[in-house]
């Protein structure tokens, strides 16, 4: 926010008219961790969207639904490290022994890279 304020000052001092202030669209990042009910345990969510019942990363229990949602979010992750930080996929005990290839395939199909 402080940087945004500073940039605004720079812009106005350079003579730019900023116009009306408007609200930004809200961005909802998925909640990581166990603070809420995880998708793989959410029967209502799974019956609505079955891919939330398809666990891809078995150690961290990340579902295909969560990976798909991350890939079509307003700021999609572009590589496997970013997808991992967003969803925790591949970051569990096995470090990708079981899911690396599957996660990579989902990422690449959605336009990301290794």
């Amino acid at each position: 926010m402080a940087i945004a304020e500073h940039v605004r000052e720079l812009l106005t001092s350079s003579g730019l008219e900023l116009g009306q202030q408007s609200d930004l669209p809200a961005i909802h990042l998925p909640a990581l961790g166990e603070s809420g009910i995880r998708p793989y345990l959410n029967d209502a969510l799974i019956s609505d969207t079955p891919s939330y019942g398809e666990i891809v990363c078995h150690c961290e229990r990340v579902t295909r639904g969560e990976i798909d949602a991350a890939m079509i979010s307003p700021i999609p992750p572009r590589d496997q490290a970013a997808l991992a930080r967003r969803t925790r996929a591949t970051l569990g005990r096995c470090q990708g022994f079981y899911c690396h290839a599957e996660v990579r395939a989902l990422l690449e199909n959605a336009g990301g890279a290794l």
Partner: peptide
């Protein structure tokens, strides 16, 4: 858990055959 939802299965006997994996770089 599966794409068709949550389920609880009660069994007379249960066999665990979940296999093994190789330790990766971090481990």
């Amino acid at each position: 858990t599966s794409p068709s939802g949550l389920e609880e299965v009660t069994a007379g006997r249960i066999i665990l055959a979940t296999g093994a994996r190789e330790r990766g770089r971090n481990a």
